[in-house]
């Protein structure tokens, strides 16, 4: 694997979607190329930042109620 290929597939690695020979050759390259090693860490950190910093919105209680009401309405055959 070369640096160009690493750049292309780095998110596959960071998302743990890589396996088999691709993973082996990725890890072999990263072991000898500090720039790509950094690139791999950076991709993982980017994902972490999105995951941690994108606050989750909770469904309003009223929405739950609305959904249940409409489902039960359907069940009753209306």
């Amino acid at each position: 694997m070369d640096c160009h290929k690493v750049r292309e597939v780095v998110f596959l690695y960071a998302d743990k979607e890589m396996d088999g020979e691709l993973l082996i050759s990725f890890e072999q390259h990263v072991a000898i190329c500090p720039e790509c090693a950094r690139r791999a860490v950076h991709a993982e950190r980017l994902i972490m930042v999105v995951r941690k910093r994108c606050g989750r919105q909770m469904a309003p209680a009223d929405l739950r109620r609305r959904i249940l009401t409409s489902l039960r309405h359907r069940e009753a055959g209306n």
Partner: peptide
Amino acid sequence: MPFVDSLYNTAYRMTRNSEDAQ
């Protein structure tokens, strides 16, 4: 029903407002 929060969060991020998301 256990997926309400997940669906709502995604809907909220896609529509960018609570009413549309609901």
